[in-house]
Nucleic acid binder design. Structure first.
Lengths: 355, 355
DNA sequence: CGATAATTGAAAAACGATTTTCTTTATATG
DNA sequence: CATATAAAGAAAATCGTTTTTCAATTATCG
């Protein structure tokens, strides 16, 4: 025989405390002033019955679920976990819960998720979109995002990593400046023949990083050589292949910037396979400064992931408070982390040759 | 002037379709058979109005939110992301959302979270507890977990990584066997003086891994030497320090097992600092096979993280379906991954791909 | 001291679905 | 053809809160 125990609700508290239901609610939410004696009576009852407010019912009535959604490419990609951790931690402190979703980098999935989120009544979304903003086919989708409505009224959406348009709040990284910083570093240590293994141009960030490379050449008045800029696809393998191509081209290079750490690692392998010494023959610098970069003592441009998460949540909270706040863009700068792949002996030896 | 647009609800659909509210619900949920013509009329209205069911209201009525909570130590720890990814992906497919929480390894926080979850009306919990099951102080907490009730009736809870007691469903790793596998490998390649830098004994897993080491010695009839087993704290630094201690002790070792990859990495560095060659002088094997292990070509025992997540979710679904199902324990075995830190020239292919 | 204002408590109406109960209509059967 | 049975639609209760409305009590001040 199932004993179908009724959940203890606010009415039970009311009965135990000998007051009305609304009074309990007012005590709990501080909606109206109540006498101290009565407050105590209510709180005692709450204590005694182990009453916990039902957030679902509360959410239904108030229209606020205190739940936010974070939609990212992948939960494992080494880039997102720190971001996620930061968001979750702060949200927790603010009384919000975080529900996570992964798109796997597929726009279809992303759109499907956004659609699905509409039935969830979340209070806001932090989205790292994989939409190509340059593709005309996405224009209506981006429009929809900009004016996303759940439940009749607009729902706050914060973009991270990529600035979808000029109307959505966003937290992004200054990629042009980031690559420039990397270039600057290589130039400082005397390198003049610097190649670039690019992040995919299809993505906004890829375009900007390339721009940073070109701007750097211009600034230092160095010639542009199309054989020194190859497009990778973010994977170590592509970095490896690109580097092989560059080395086989007969071009002499003494410096390499990669569009991300993974490709940099692949490129280093390729160089070492050719018997080249790093950093003596070729100085290599990555981008993102994900954890493994420090492990193999590779120089990189550090993206402040925790900071990004923190800022994104702050923007989201701001917009939840005030839906009409003016649009805000936060552009963070990465900073240079010098390790052995550009300056030998920077830290204790820990390079790939040893393995 | 705010235009307070009303959300479109089931009643709007009913009006547009020219039927009653309940009929719409029945069509949408297939609760009762309806004529095809009417079903079409309703679906057309749904389509036309872009109606999305309100999961909050549905949750309130049905008692099912289709949301599960995953509580882990840290979202960045390199161990959890793959687990989380796996859980989230499968949950998504099953129509569940995943809300994540981090305890930071603090029992207080964990207990606070569990308490808080009670007001959330989630359908189930997957918990990687940081509670020391041996500590008498935790006995009442564990008891509470075993009989966790939300909203009057019991809520499914699945343990991962650590088997809290014999009544809760759990997905764990056979740590004794895992260390044994590692030992076996070192023995196979001719090592006879094998040290162990241990995972903290305070945790269950730490105890088991130590047990595995001791069992291995016994099996191969090797002498136990207390100076060859040191307790680390999971960090690379502790691995480094322990290794230094062992090397300074004057004991000659030719093999080392570490309780996790991080400590193994630290230990390798200590060995290399002493001018020792790996694997020639000392063969080193880690545990967990987290991503960096492949990066530096270190042998390790691979814990099937995705599989753990998958199984945990399956157990959870099973218990949601049938709260009275008999308790189920899934013990997964880790498998040996041989790389350069135990067998030179193993030169694996691109392990980097899954970065 | 009496009128006005300020507190406080109780009852009832939402919030947006599901689900039971009750009609009504269509179908099959003797 | 009448009756039993099945099918389909409508009305109303419910889930556990919040929040408005209104009534009752107490405090304030000329």
């Amino acid at each position: 025989m199932e004993k179908e125990m009724k959940p203890i609700g606010i009415k039970d508290v009311a009965k135990t405390a000998g007051v009305s239901i609304s009074t309990v609610s007012h005590v709990l939410n501080g909606t109206k002033p109540v006498s101290d004696s009565l407050r105590k009576r209510v709180m005692d009852a709450v204590e005694e019955l182990h009453y916990e407010v039902n957030m679902v019912a509360k959410g239904l009535k108030s229209g606020r679920t205190h739940n936010i959604a974070v939609v990212v490419n992948s939960l494992t990609s080494i880039f997102f976990p720190p971001l996620l951790q930061s968001i979750q931690g702060d949200a927790d402190r603010l009384g919000y819960t975080v529900t996570v979703f992964a798109t796997g980098g597929e726009l279809n999935k992303e759109q499907e998720l956004i659609q699905m989120l509409k039935s969830l009544w979340i209070d806001g979304i932090i989205l790292s979109s994989c939409a190509d903003t340059a593709d005309p086919a996405n224009v209506s989708y981006l429009e929809e995002l900009t004016d996303l409505k759940i439940n009749g009224h607009p729902i706050p959406l914060i973009c991270i990593e990529s600035e979808l348009n000029t109307r959505l709040d966003a937290v992004i990284v200054d990629d042009v400046d980031g690559i420039f910083t990397a270039f600057n570093h290589l130039y400082d240590i005397g390198r003049r023949h610097i190649a670039y293994i690019a992040a995919p141009f299809a993505y906004n960030t890829g375009k900007l990083r390339k721009e940073g490379y070109l701007a750097s050449l211009k600034k230092y008045n160095l010639p542009f050589n199309s054989r020194l800029i190859l497009e990778g696809d973010y994977t170590p393998v592509s970095g490896y292949e690109c580097m092989k191509t560059i080395l086989a081209s007969g071009e002499m290079i003494d410096g390499l910037i990669a569009g991300n750490d993974q490709m940099a690692i692949g490129a280093m392998r390729a160089a070492m396979d050719k018997g080249l010494k790093i950093p003596e023959d070729i100085a290599v610098i990555g981008y993102d400064d994900n954890f493994p970069a420090s492990l193999i003592q590779m120089s990189s441009i550090n993206i402040p992931k925790e900071e990004m998460g923190k800022m994104a949540l702050e923007l989201l909270m701001r917009r939840i408070e005030n839906p009409n706040a003016s649009r805000m863009l936060i552009r963070l700068n990465g900073d240079l982390v010098v390790r052995n792949s550009t300056v030998a002996g920077t830290k204790s030896t820990w390079d790939l040759e040893n393995w």
